[in-house]
Nucleic acid binder design. Structure first.
Lengths: 244, 244
DNA sequence: CGTCGATTTGACTAAGATCAATTTAGGTGG
DNA sequence: CCACCTAAATTGATCTTAGTCAAATCGACG
């Protein structure tokens, strides 16, 4: 799908710790067992206990929880370089489900292989822990948005964060990025209805801040968006860990 | 404050993996450097880079983020047996602040001591990772509540979860528990206003489901609350990990 | 007794949800 | 190539939940 994405994880972790050739080699070998996931077909059911982690190499996946009344909350989106199901390895019951938003490719890594790789390259473990912590910080920021930002700021913040994440793995730049999400995905992520998402996007467009059309997010006034959203990317911290 | 709370962490982890005498000893030795935190005085400022973790032995603390406009979102509450600032050890910038809700006591553990303890008792590391994963699952569930539950269900779910957590460390039981939170705390946690929290508690009381008065949460109709909230404690999983 | 914070209640407003259509764009079969 | 089907996007009208503004009550504490 995109030639440079197999290296997305390398690129992401390298932005954080300088990994040696040997460590990058271990990382590459982990990503041998490739699997394809077709858009719309769920990956893991809520309540199952998986024994593998997936490293997404290309595509988009969302992780979500559904409630008894059928409403769903999307917790996070995963793009190239992101992990799927890391937490589920530790908790006996997987606490949410995964839906590929578009056809996606991921490397399947067994818990055993992962532990072996950590033994071989301990700094890899640190780097992955950093990535996991960063993911958790994003969930926290997501909670802040849903709890304390109005629809416009919430949308702006969400799309800015996504832009930063994608730029880190070489997809898109400061001006915008390609984004296959539907307004329903946005609604389920932001705790809004699809209808309100539509009106929110219209407002942002009419204010000259950004457009989202034909699968493309385009920032027209990035600074204006940042101000509206109160976006402070400190929580995406790319400057390295304390333990290194 | 409460005689049995110093053992809260032991009790919590033991509910999950059977720890040996030796492992429990390592755990106890970690908790020697006690510190007191006075109610209302913040522990760590957003943006600082701490080099220690705290293990709360008694009291209540909340972790939160404040936004530029002054609104705040409480991400989680910590009670006896919970960690403070574990994630901040990995991300260079601490991504939120801590406020002791009441006078609290915590053991300060340096990153070095923690790593040493893991070397001595590797199963302790697994158990603590489990606890960290569980904390993250709680944040996810919190996000689901704020995003997709109305005020009544959100409140009911929150108070039920808190009850389960407290029962695990021996504070309170299935009927209720002592809770020092103000309605403002609840509002900042649930993404509501304090006024609406007040009305929400009144509705729950009038429906005969529960009361919250004079620092005491009392379940009157636990099953009714569980149904209203759609509370499924699977994400609090106490049945053990895959890696053990 | 007076002050301050927390709780409680009422009246009103507003952000976002719900209900109901219509339009648009891809894909499919004939 | 075109009629048809479906999912997504768009818009209007109306309703509901929760927020805002204002004020009274209550309790702890100096």
């Amino acid at each position: 799908m995109d030639a440079n994405t197999p290296a997305a994880l390398n690129r992401k972790l390298s932005a954080f710790v300088a990994l040696s050739e040997a460590e990058l080699g271990v990382l590459d070998r982990l990503q041998h067992r490739r699997r394809r996931f077709a858009a719309g077909h769920d990956l893991v059911q809520q309540g199952q206990a998986p024994k593998s982690v997936y490293l997404l190499t290309s595509g988009w996946v969302c992780s979500y929880k559904v409630q008894a009344d059928g409403t769903r909350q999307i917790v996070d989106f995963q793009v190239a370089g992101d992990f799927l199901g890391l937490r589920s390895l530790l908790l006996r019951t997987s606490d949410h489900s995964f839906e590929p938003v578009v056809d996606s490719y991921a490397a399947e890594v067994s818990a055993g292989d992962l532990l072996a790789a950590f033994g071989e390259a301990p700094r890899l473990a640190i780097a992955m822990l950093w990535a996991a912590s960063r993911d958790e910080a994003m969930v926290v920021e997501h909670l802040v948005g849903v709890g304390r930002r109005d629809a416009d700021a919430r949308m702006a913040h969400f799309l800015l964060e996504l832009g930063s994440r994608l730029a880190l793995v070489g997809l898109g730049d400061g001006d915008g990025y390609d984004c296959p999400l539907t307004q329903t995905h946005l609604a389920d992520a932001l705790g809004l209805t699809a209808i309100h998402v539509n009106r929110t996007l219209r407002r942002l467009r009419e204010r000259g801040l950004m457009t989202f059309r034909d699968g493309r997010v385009q920032f027209e006034d990035r600074q204006g968006l940042v101000t509206l959203a109160g976006f402070d990317p400190a929580y995406l911290d790319q400057t390295g860990p304390l333990l290194a």
